[in-house]
Simulated scan of single mutants.
Amino acid sequence: MTTHGKDTLEIRPLEPLAVEFTSSWHYEAGALIDEIGTPHGLARWVDAYRPRLGMDASTPAELGAPDVTAALAVREAVRDLLDALVDGGRPPAASLDLVTERARGVQRAAVGWPEAGPRLEWPDGVRVMDIVGAQVCASATRLLTSPRRGLLRRCPAPSCVLFFSALRTGQQWCSPACGNRARVARHSARTR
């Protein structure tokens, strides 16, 4: 998706896949962007994340409206879990159940070792959205149950809805742009 002539799909390779998937919904220049809200957008996201999903380039990403509905449900459930972790609360039981159930789908993959090196091999007939749901939810369960969960933050910058891992000491925002927006907002509030 583009806004103001700029590609909005930004890959942050150090973030867990679950955090990246929740980041498919964000604000850009004050406009709400939903990267996976259409079949084309979801297919584009899948293509960008193929290596992290364990999908090779030959797996076609033919996705339709039911896949978008499934993707949005997964994103909402994962976001509920991340919100609960950051806020110190409990997630809705339905979200926890959906993530747990979808994460079990990774058991369908096997590690193959062709000439090019190790890779995940999914059985024939596994749908692309099943792979996406399994990998994103497995990433969420690994994040939530690992020591890395202590690094998860919600960006406090104005108009930002992203989560990020605070990988640097004192990191407060998901990006330098959000840090600048927050400083400008503070300065404006002081001068008013």
Rank of each mutant, 00 (worst) to 15 (best):
L53S: 00
L53H: 00
L53E: 00
D56W: 02
A57D: 11
A57S: 11
S58T: 13
T59P: 02
T59L: 08
P60Q: 00
E62T: 12
L63I: 00
G64A: 13
G64R: 05
G64D: 14
V68P: 01
V68M: 02
V68L: 01
T69A: 10
T69E: 11
A70V: 03
A70Q: 06
A70I: 02
A71H: 01
A71P: 04
L72M: 14
A73I: 00
V74P: 03
V74M: 14
V74A: 13
R75E: 06
R75L: 03
E76K: 12
E76M: 07
A77E: 07
V78Y: 07
R79E: 10
L82K: 08
L82V: 06
D83K: 09
L85G: 12
L85P: 09
L85K: 15
D87S: 07
G88V: 07
G89K: 08
P92H: 08
A93P: 11
A94C: 08
S95F: 07
L96W: 15
D97V: 10
L98N: 04
T100W: 12
T100A: 14
R104T: 14
G105P: 06
G105K: 05
V106A: 08
V106D: 06
V106K: 06
Q107E: 12
Q107W: 09
R108V: 10
A109E: 02
A110H: 13
V111F: 08
V111R: 08
W113F: 13
P114I: 02
E115A: 14
A116W: 02
G117T: 04
G117E: 01
P118Y: 11
P118F: 07
P118C: 11
E121N: 11
E121D: 14
W122F: 03
W122G: 00
P123R: 11
P123S: 07
P123N: 10
P123M: 10
V126Q: 08
V126G: 10
V128A: 05
M129K: 01
M129Q: 01
D130V: 01
V132G: 04
A134P: 06
A134Q: 05
Q135R: 15
Q135N: 08
V136W: 07
V136M: 06
A140Q: 08
A140V: 12
T141H: 14
L143S: 10
L143F: 11
L144H: 13
S146N: 08
S146F: 13
S146T: 09
P147N: 12
P147A: 14
R149V: 12
R149L: 09
R149E: 09
R149T: 12
L151C: 12
R153V: 02
R153F: 04
R153N: 02
R154E: 11
C155T: 01
C155I: 03
P156N: 06
P156Q: 06
A157C: 09
P158F: 13
S159F: 11
C160I: 01
C160N: 01
C160M: 04
V161S: 14
F163A: 06
F163M: 10
S165L: 15
